[in-house]
Write a protein that binds this DNA or RNA. Sequence first.
DNA 1: TATTGTTATACTCTATAACTATA
DNA 2: TATAGTTATAGAGTATAACAATA
Lengths: 147, 147
Amino acid sequence: METAATETGKEIGFATALVRLSHLVQQVFAEVSRERELTPQQAQLLCMLIDGPIGMTELSRLLNLEKSSLTGLVDRVERRGLVARARDSHDRRACRIAVTEQGSRTGADAHQAVITRLEALAEEVPPADKRLLADVVAQMLAVREGG
Amino acid sequence: METAATETGKEIGFATALVRLSHLVQQVFAEVSRERELTPQQAQLLCMLIDGPIGMTELSRLLNLEKSSLTGLVDRVERRGLVARARDSHDRRACRIAVTEQGSRTGADAHQAVITRLEALAEEVPPADKRLLADVVAQMLAVREGG
DNA sequence: TATTGTTATACTCTATAACTATA
DNA sequence: TATAGTTATAGAGTATAACAATA
């Protein structure tokens, strides 16, 4: 079995490490969201829209959510003035969700805070190890998408 | 900036890799839970109890949940016969949540399925890299707990 | 007084099924 | 017919505040 020993004597397997890491990231994300009076789902939505507007169907795929669930989520974030539905110029059934100016600020700010805190937790990790880890992640994501 | 290049030309930073990895783990966990007709939260609760009974206060700390939220979660899982509240022999205010036999089977099964699928996604990753990643995670968790 | 856990309340999140409008 | 998105409904998850029982 693959294990990792720490100075505290704990040993954890590879998959267990991934699960723990996931919890850690979720906690950081929850903290950052809460400080901005957002739910984690709302913050995730904003972060997802930073690079440009996205339609509901594509968003539901990216967030792994049913479209009907997304409707409500977008409703609540729209009600707070952080995103807006815009008509799609080529398909009158469709709409594109875009961040407002305030939503853009909040989303970028939250995104940066998450990055900063995660980097802080890895302050002592050598850059080469970080690069390797990012490579491993990219590889796993490729497997998921390809397979 | 720390970046990682994949064969598809995508480059992602270290912190971004952690966030993506977290999503991946969450998706795997959601799939495994759903196949067992559990919510991710319910499955997580079961997994948490595999190694023995835990009290509500400690559980709420481990799950990062308010105690009042945990009450409902435990209620629903108890109603399905997967866990049971037992009196604490030394403190009559407290109770300890324990898995039932069925809950134990379901929890262990779900846990194993998550491990198996994550390992499958990392099939091509060299063992040495996996160990390194587990070490890095252990180190980050230590920072979080220590700081 | 402090701690353990629950209740009451109000939202948010989520899925399923049925629907409208457009392609 | 198929697709984009919404509505209706029901249940699950969550936090805050107030509470009961015990330490």
